[in-house]
Design a protein around this nucleic acid. Structure first.
Lengths: 348, 348
DNA sequence: CTGTTAGCGCTTTCAG
DNA sequence: CTGAAAGCGCTAACAG
């Protein structure tokens, strides 16, 4: 029924081994023989059996990419960049690697499940994006699983996630702390003293680091960190909307809102506008990440640009062995402050 | 070195066959035996070998998803929705299906390559999203490939893409024509007569259908379709920006710009603003798709909402056999006109 | 440069 | 309900 390598071999009058060698191009084969084989492949419309070759060779062409939410451009951009670098020459069977994208929804349980599934597929590499949950049994379980993966020869790359101890996983960590510090310092420099902060979910590393940066900037300027001015939420627009209303309730004298990311900032803008406040004349707003839509906000959003695309591309190259991992297996990726129209000097 | 099913069998004192049956849960096994096997699996920390089982069973747990660009929320939302419905119970080995996301960049060549790669992996299903290129040898080649895939038992679902003749592929097509017609009719109803249209790349079905809907509305209102008022570009912001400048150059009397999608519309807004024109007082702007950021544009974007998430979820269920395909293998998914602040009555 | 020979680890009839 | 046995289709030594 289905045509196999043996059929091709028969038709080309060579041994199955030779066909395999031609197809994988990893072994010398006479040009004339190759021609013949390729011709047979074409005539029979033969397609290699991936599972069979993965079984025999004990590796696969699959690369796992774990994201919180692929519908969020933050992850979409990284996933796209990773993908763009995993194809191309260099691997088996033409070097075409396939990306298995797994939506974890930020849940450590699902993350663990997906890692096991990728382990089952004998994935050649796994890239984990976004912040991690840092406490509880899950964090330990994930660390243990990553260790098993690396032990089994799977290259593990953390893209925008802090390193995991006792692991061979390579980490490209975002400097969330530094970026947040710069951003808040910018606001303070403009004269702001009562700044609201809309943080992400509590137990995540990204949330903690950005919040720490914010507080460092406040402390450096001798501004008291009023706990009432920090509200936690999710990393989405709606959360920003609601949190801003809450902040306004708690502190009508607010002159600036710093959001956990750009989506949250957009929600904050909507809430402010609906409350009759002008941006930035009445209240300044700042985001984080610099997603594509941020420059189109009105006024354009002041934010910290994270080189998502570059980081993803680098992660993809490291995952496929086309770039040396950074020394010590850790590189810090810095953000860049983008000052735009949504921040200005406070009123009064 | 690595623990196999045989190891588990030995430890549980049963045959390999029994272990396989327990793991796949598709065959009666005594409760006590199952317990013993599961215990051994746990103790040995056994992970099934995916390629091996795929080879033996001649199917895999992989589902391919083809997108133009995963960084674009239009595709990200669909991909996320598809994913959310392909997991869960119902399949082999716990029914956990993995999504292989392939970025084609809109290129038919890459689309074809990825389809072959998915065929090689013996993917259980393939979902193709977004419009198709409709002419040339590629379209035929893709149709032929889809036929081969369905013949081989792979479920093929077209999500937001018109049906392909002589194929068992199920299509969930967006009513781009109807949506575009409604949108332009809305503008005409407001009193607009000189409407610029920024279309997508020429050879794509989505582009053609949206443009046709626009022209139908013009024709219905007895408005001449001035070719100078249609500009083709890509489906991105930059394209919208440039095309708008061009339209303004060609026709300073323009009172409305209809964009191929929301990203293009955002670019159009930026160009208009920089040209000193107010939206909608001087020029109205409309988009298509209703991506999440569109409601946050200032003014909020009038657009046609496409139920991307619902369509993706349905495609995922059909792909995994959890929902009956629509009668005739084709369903049309309609959009909904969302009238917001970016459109108004024309000046003068 | 090419052929021969063993498996890779699992599923699945077919018996029992 | 359980076991035995026969591959699934390919790769990778090892010879030649």
């Amino acid at each position: 029924m289905t045509v196999t390598l043996a059929d091709v071999a028969a038709r080309a009058q060579v041994s199955p081994a030779t066909v395999s060698r031609v197809l994988n191009g990893n072994y010398p084969v006479a040009a004339s023989t190759r021609e013949r084989v390729l011709k047979a492949v074409d005539e029979l419309d033969y397609v290699l059996n991936g599972p069979a070759s993965a079984l025999a060779a004990a590796t696969s062409d699959l690369i796992g990419i774990l994201v919180n939410d692929i519908a969020d451009p933050f992850f979409g951009i990284m996933a796209g960049a990773i993908q763009s670098e995993i194809g191309g020459p260099g691997g088996r069977a033409g070097g075409e690697r396939l990306a298995v994208v797994c939506n974890t929804g930020g849940s450590p349980e699902r993350e663990l499940t997906y890692l096991t599934l990728l382990q089952r597929q004998r994935a050649a590499a796994v890239v984990l994006t976004g912040g991690a949950v840092e406490e509880g049994p899950h964090a330990a379980a994930i660390a243990a699983k990553l260790r098993k993966l690396t032990d089994a020869g799977t290259q593990v790359v953390l893209c925008g996630r802090p390193p995991v101890a006792d692991t061979d996983a390579v980490a490209l960590a975002f400097d969330n702390r530094g970026g947040a510090r710069q951003l808040t310092a910018h606001l303070i420099g403009l004269g702001h003293r009562r700044l609201g902060y809309i943080a992400g979910p509590k137990e995540r590393t990204t949330t903690r680091h950005r919040l720490e940066g914010h507080r460092q900037a406040l402390a450096a300027a001798g501004i008291e960190d009023d706990p009432a001015l920090t509200v936690h939420g999710r990393y989405d627009r709606r959360s920003g909307y609601e949190a801003t209303l809450e902040l306004l309730r708690r502190e009508p004298g607010l002159t600036a809102v710093v959001a956990a990311n750009d989506s949250v900032a957009l929600g904050a803008c909507a809430a402010l506008r609906e409350s009759g406040l002008r941006i930035p004349q009445d209240v300044s707003v700042a985001g984080f990440d610099d997603l594509p839509f941020s420059v189109d906000a009105v006024p354009a959003l002041t934010t910290v640009r994270l080189p998502l695309s570059e980081a993803g591309a680098r992660a993809g190259r490291i995952a496929t062995g086309r770039e040396e991992p950074p020394p010590g297996g850790l590189a810090t990726v810095r953000g860049e402050l983008m000052v735009r129209g949504s921040t200005g000097v406070p009123r009064g």
